[in-house]
């Protein structure tokens, strides 16, 4: 009872703090969190709806046993389930359906992770662990669909994607990386702290030396990969002289097959058959 009151209080405070929607996904994710807190209150209705829609047919029990699988599955070696939701199936669903499906999947994931943990604790075999991956794939696909819809809206209304902006910047060692922008109250020219933190250039003898060695390392990776593929082709030619050269050419475009064929190393360790 106290937890329900707490949630109610949280929901109330959240409602007063709640900011209106902006065109940035960061705010959107915040709003999402607020909504998920609010949805806990109306959980009963949420469950009834689902059972009628048959997205999920679990009993509307609201105790902690929801974190555990059905007791009849506990001793099973395999729990058979269908496949994950595909993108094209989620694209035809309304926002409301997706919202509900998200919480069904979230609950299922919580349940599976609890069961996996409990099975490990009790030295039991967790039946059908691929269920976790199926839920994960479904959740990823659902997120993609929601993102697509929001992107389309923002592109139509503002000409921007509405995603968190990012750009490529150089760090103090002269290495490039993707900088993900953050939301600030102050404009950049007034934000002295930020200017100081970002005001990093690179240069000097030490950085030049570092970059030289770093690039050498990257070059070596490339060089070794090339050598490896050449050696692989060499070994294949040595093992099977009747190999289809065209396939090798298309599979290893970097390797000079003609040069390798002239090479003594590609000749197998056997007496060649000569037709008389």
């Amino acid at each position: 009872m106290s937890s329900v009151l707490k949630i109610l209080n949280v929901a109330k405070t959240v409602k007063t703090v709640c900011t209106s929607i902006s065109n940035k996904s960061l705010t959107n994710s915040l709003l999402n969190r607020i909504q998920c807190q609010q949805i806990q209150i109306s959980q009963n209705a949420f469950f009834f709806y689902l059972s009628t829609r048959s997205f999920h047919s679990s009993r509307p029990c609201l105790d902690l046993m929801q974190f555990f699988d059905d007791p009849k599955n506990w001793s099973e070696n395999e729990v058979k389930v269908g496949r994950a939701w595909k993108l094209e199936e989620l694209r035809i669903k309304s926002n409301k359906d997706l919202h509900q499906l998200w919480y069904v999947l979230l609950k299922e994931r919580n349940m599976l992770l609890t069961m996996e943990h409990e099975c490990n604790e009790k030295m039991e075999l967790f039946p059908s662990p691929e269920r976790l991956d199926k839920v994960k794939i479904s959740m990823e696909n659902l997120e993609t669909v929601v993102r697509e819809r929001n992107k389309a809206y923002h592109l139509l209304e503002t000409g921007e994607t509405g995603e968190r902006p990012s750009r490529v910047v150089y760090n103090a060692l002269g290495l490039r990386h993707l900088y993900k922008s953050c939301e600030h109250v102050l404009p950049p020219h007034m934000n002295v702290k930020w200017i100081k933190s970002r005001n990093i250039g690179f240069g000097g003898r030490a950085v030049r030396k570092f970059l030289l060695l770093y690039r050498e390392k990257l070059y070596n990776v490339k060089r070794k990969a090339k050598n490896r593929s050449r050696n692989e082709v060499m070994m294949m030619l040595r093992r099977n002289p009747n190999i289809d050269i065209q396939i090798i050419r298309s599979k290893y475009p970097d390797v000079d097959v003609d040069k390798l064929l002239r090479d003594d190393k590609t000749r197998g360790h056997f007496v060649p058959k000569v037709d008389i």
Partner: peptide, 25 residues
């Protein structure tokens, strides 16, 4: 509408306050 706007409308959550201007950088 965005996903969030649609869900808010569905659940009857109304928001009149105007957000403060922020800067992304």
């Amino acid at each position: 509408s965005t996903f969030e706007m649609d869900i808010m409308e569905e659940m009857g959550i109304e928001e009149e306050r105007i957000p403060k201007k922020t800067y992304w950088y």
